[in-house]
């Protein structure tokens, strides 16, 4: 599955369009990593637990997008965008969407 965030797959010809595909996941933070983050918050710097959490969540959202595209018979997704929104305290929705296409 080829994924790009530009309007085409460079070097390949688009054969068919399938329209929008999307995937999202809602994640809450883990108490343990939250405690560690609280400590790390005193001295500043990167909060690795959160970085990992959000990275995993986005990967899952993108995985769902891919599944949807596969079901439609697409082999590429173009113009992928990400959106993040805080749902409630400590929980966030991460979403990915794009256009499913088939290329040669």
């Amino acid at each position: 599955m080829i994924i790009t965030n530009i309007d085409s797959v460079p070097g390949r010809k688009v054969v068919e369009h399938f329209g929008i595909v999307q995937g999202s996941t809602v994640r809450a933070r883990h108490m343990g990593s939250d405690f560690a983050a609280g400590l790390k918050n005193m001295v500043g710097g990167e909060l690795k637990g959160y970085t990992k959490l959000l990275e995993d969540a986005r990967a899952e959202a993108l995985e769902r997008v891919k599944q949807q595209a596969q079901q439609l018979g697409a082999n590429a997704i173009i113009n992928v965008r990400f959106a993040t929104s805080a749902i409630s305290q400590g929980a966030a929705e991460l979403m990915a969407y794009g256009t499913a296409i088939r290329v040669e």
């Binding site: 080829i2 994924i3 790009t4 965030n5 530009i6 085409s8 797959v9 460079p10 070097g11 983050a37 790390k40 918050n41 005193m42 001295v43 500043g44 710097g45 990167e46 909060l47 690795k48 959160y50 970085t51 959000l54 990275e55 986005r58 992928v80 990400f82």
Partner: peptide
């Protein structure tokens, strides 16, 4: 764009915080 052989999306993220 014809010079492009292969394309794939890449991403990275960082969570960073202020000190006290």
């Amino acid at each position: 764009l014809d010079d492009v052989e292969e394309a794939q999306m890449v991403s990275a993220n960082v969570v960073i915080s202020l000190d006290y």
